[in-house]
Design a protein around this nucleic acid. Structure first.
Lengths: 348, 348
DNA sequence: CTGTTAGCGCTTTCAG
DNA sequence: CTGAAAGCGCTAACAG
């Protein structure tokens, strides 16, 4: 403890072993800790001169408030937890960027975690946020359990991209069914009758919605769907390429609708490796526009989503909820749009 | 306070307004808080049966330790802060993924922040980590000030990708000079004598190293370098394309070396827009291999970096430092490798 | 406008 | 092996 040394007038440049505390700066300015707290946190009455001395002392000594102490006392923090499935996937990265931007403007700290689409990791993340008394959490849910845990403990959660929670909470999603419908209808209108669907095998509403849209377009066009053309992939698809290759070989679709950017990438590689030309031999449509799709030749027709806006909306929803915890759960649904490029054409 | 209700034998399923505390579970198991602490945190003697009762009570009541209280008491946490320039850039995303993986294995929590290459945001991030008593921080530095701040307060920092700190700290970088040298030498060996360099205008060691390698290759090949071919771009390059376009128009280079993935992407777009064929009209080499480079036609010759390994190394360095704070600062340097693809050929 | 007092939830001596 | 007591740094009544 620094009561052993004389505490007065020390130059603030020594390599401090002990971080400086509010008490230190109060003493340096000749006030009590409470006054210092009021001055520095900006709430409560403090005389202008006291405040000035305090502020001066604070930045002379390089004071950094101890977040733990504050959180412990106030029983809440300004941290908002965010957990996404895969930080390395551009979709989630852009989502996070959107969230962070809005959160920052509202003076909240984003804490980002990846869960590799593992429900266990997701729960661990939720517990970590609980432990640090995060004010709220935004997530692309894997299982619904994490959200339940959080909600049960009273932390606000908003789900993005997918909606899985059984507990009531806000969510913002894309109109997946409509996006998939548009993509599929486009293919069908071009005259394709053997359209393959590449979709992730989960309970997630996103993939379910995309499959529904795919089916609905078939139904409305009166095209019978061969179930073998629906290929489901595990979340971590190590052998996706082989599976796609087999699909191509055995069922000879004339068009492929890949329902996320990773599957589209895999499909594209398989097509190239097999020497199949786009769009002459096979047409390809993706879901979620990422830069490469516009760069390859031919460019890929895709259902584009407002990814960053998705993030911003989620953050806004959370902010609103923190403001008014009692308001009824809200679901926002953003519209995707079909961008037609060179990878789709009538079957030959 | 829950002293007002009878605290015994409550089912743990009510929507708890107040999170359950260690004291709650101690009471439920009929011990003192100290014993509960010892049992649950696993250090100190506790009888097997007491521990069993405590553990049972803890997960019956859904106990989540309060991280703030623990951090406050122990004066340190298990959080490692990570701040990168741009979460949306695949390079940084993969870097973060590598870091997180290694950190997780060592049971540390990664807290990720983006600073948009703004020194002010970087400092704000550093302060946030200071405030939450992060054990260490890993960053792709923008200015060196943040690192100084951190180091002065005694938190371990390791710089990744670039080295800017004036304070002594660990770092792990790529051999940028060598990578750029190889790329440039390749172009020169092909017979190009008007090679343009696209580089970010910063003090960063990464870009400086790349420029040096570029110059060194020219010197060794005995090719005189026209300074107009060296194009420097601000970190946030809004008009990069115009600048590149002008470079092409006015100085007619026969090859371009774009020293990061974003500049390569911009250059590629400009080339395409102007109808310049790769590699017939112009050769292009990038730095930092990202997926699209292998997908476009022709594929892009590039200096590939071990990005995830860079992250893992940084995390390992930090872990080592936490173990042994006194060890001398260490600089690890990883080797990049030139991947020759179709975008480079002799000038026509 | 300011100081005193108390306590957030946890860990850690220190006695038993 | 266990409990009592103290205190981490901060904020929020509550008197002055």
């Amino acid at each position: 403890m620094n009561a052993t040394q004389h505490p007065e007038e020390e130059e603030g440049r020594a390599p401090l072993a002990q971080p400086v505390t509010l008490t230190d700066i109060a003493r340096a300015a000749g006030t009590s800790a409470s006054t210092a707290s009021r001055a520095l946190s900006g709430r409560g009455y403090v005389s202008a001169e006291a405040r000035a001395r305090l502020v001066a002392a604070a930045d002379r000594l390089g004071y950094v408030p101890n977040a733990s102490a504050r959180t412990l006392k106030q029983r809440t923090s300004r941290v908002v937890g965010v957990v996404v499935s895969d930080i390395g996937n551009q979709f989630y990265a852009r989502l996070a960027a959107g969230i962070e931007q809005t959160l920052r403007e509202a003076d909240y700290q984003m804490m980002l975690l990846g869960d590799n689409s593992e429900s266990a990791e997701e729960i661990a993340g939720a517990r970590a946020f609980l432990a640090m008394r995060a004010r709220g959490v935004i997530m692309t849910p894997v299982s619904g359990d994490a959200a339940s845990l959080l909600v049960a403990q009273g932390v606000a959660v908003v789900e993005v991209d997918r909606q899985l929670a059984t507990s009531p909470c806000d969510a913002v999603v894309i109109d997946n069914e409509r996006g998939a419908y548009d993509a599929t209808a486009h293919l069908l209108a071009l005259g394709h009758s053997k359209v393959a669907l590449l979709v992730v095998d989960t309970e997630w509403t996103s993939d379910a919605g995309r499959e529904q849209g795919f089916r609905k377009a078939h139904a409305e066009a009166g095209v019978e769907l061969d179930e073998r053309l629906v290929a489901r992939f595990p979340v971590h698809a190590p052998h996706a390429k082989e599976r796609i290759e087999r699909l191509l070989r055995e069922d000879a679709p004339t068009a492929i609708f890949a329902s996320n950017n990773l599957l589209a990438e895999q499909a594209w590689h398989v097509l190239r490796r097999r020497g199949l030309r786009l769009p002459d031999d096979v047409s390809l449509v993706g879901f979620d526009d990422v830069p490469w799709m516009e760069m390859v030749d031919p460019a890929i027709t895709v259902v584009a989503q407002p990814t960053e806006e998705l993030g911003r909306s989620a953050a806004r929803l959370l902010l609103r909820r923190l403001d008014d915890p009692a308001s009824p759960p809200r679901l926002d649904c953003l519209q995707p749009s079909l961008v037609i490029r060179g990878s789709t054409a009538p079957p030959s």
